[in-house]
Write a protein that binds this DNA or RNA. Structure first.
Lengths: 210, 210
DNA sequence: AAGAGCATGTAAGCTGTTACATGATTAT
DNA sequence: ATAATCATGTAACAGCTTACATGCTCTT
């Protein structure tokens, strides 16, 4: 079996194509106009990436050429592509992801609900929360350790990173609450205030605990 | 003149070498043990990068081989390297930097005080603040625009990005206050003190002090 | 003597960047 | 008719990753 390691851009393309079959040009527009500008919208990146994905059997393109239409090739996920996307999304969040690949984690989370389901979103949030909770103290230690020797700007830069992680941790807790509310209170019209504030895990089987 | 575009890793190396002459191995250790783990510590990245920098005349290595010591090559910035580092740090912060290169902005800021002076740090903070202030409303607009069509996880992911930027904006304000207290305080209460203009060292010749 | 860690490098491969190139359709 | 935009690609290049390779020094 080939290694089939898909690049980050490739994963982004898989996720977007799962949401909606699109042409290369459509995808470029998404990357150039929405908050996904972090990803490259250059044709030299996208078209080769699409070719690779097709060659690996994850997507399949069909040329649409109606009368009076420009030729365009619309790509769709194959079954293998869907499986691969799910596998990518379901990967647990490791410390390495927190340090070097937070954007990829957020991308996986963004796609998780449509591609797998809310429980996958919750699992990502939980493992992200766990990793953040264990990593942030390390950063604090580094800060207090190097405080004496670092220049002010270096210290401030490190503090900025820590605050970013703090912020993200708070967000994960908010997001988990959102999912708890969604699932726990489907019949919320009846009771405005009785059944909130649970913060319990849902049908997830205790994926990780504290 | 060649374009001499230095990679992000190259810039990180320049900054670290400005702070302290080091060998490739020293630099690798920094990348593997400190909060700079975002950068690669692999020899296949660092040694070629050092070679490039030397070839471009930004650093110069000298082999230290004392008796009973392992051979190691210690690199130092040249005058050209110092100038290049300063140029990189002094670049204004653009929206593209905020969207796709925040880590590089933070790196520049981290080095700014030692390599150029506090006023450069302040300039980075101010332009970063300005770009954030103009960019964040755009994100809010995207959020409210797509709220209807996005899945919950997609919306939450976007919110996470927005919160991250909010957090960063608050940090810039904190950091600016820090510098105001340190240095610009006299301007505030109109009480002239003997101000230390540490910032005027742009024409330094003896760059690589021991 | 053996092994661990120090210190440096090289080579293959992949991906993204930049720049160029090509047609076809719509707008002016 | 001309320009702009749609839509797709290719080629050269640079940089990083992974993996391998080489010796030297210190510890046990």
């Amino acid at each position: 079996m080939a290694k089939v390691a898909i690049s980050k851009l490739g994963c982004a393309l898989l996720g977007l194509l799962q949401q909606k079959p699109s042409s290369g040009y459509d995808l470029r527009k998404i990357f150039s106009t929405t908050a996904m500008t972090t990803y490259s919208d250059s044709p030299g990146a996208i078209y080769p990436a699409l070719q690779r994905l097709q060659q690996q059997g994850f997507i399949r393109g069909s040329i649409e050429s109606g009368s009076g239409m420009r030729r365009r090739q619309v790509f769709r996920l194959t079954a293998r592509g869907t499986a691969e996307l799910r596998k990518w999304i379901a990967r647990p969040v490791l410390r390495a992801d927190v340090i070097r690949g937070l954007d990829e984690v957020m991308l996986r989370f963004a796609f998780s609900e449509q591609a797998v389901g809310p429980s996958a979103s919750v699992r990502i949030l939980q493992s992200l929360q766990a990793e953040l909770t264990s990593y942030i103290p390390d950063l604090h230690q580094q800060l207090s350790a190097g405080k004496a020797t670092m220049p002010t700007s270096g210290r401030l830069a490190l503090e900025s990173g820590i605050k970013g992680y703090d912020c993200l941790l708070r967000w994960t807790q908010d997001a988990l609450r959102t999912y708890a509310l969604k699932k726990v209170a489907p019949a919320k019209d009846a009771r405005p205030k009785n059944i909130v504030q649970k913060d319990q895990n849902l049908d997830t089987k205790g994926v990780e605990s504290s």
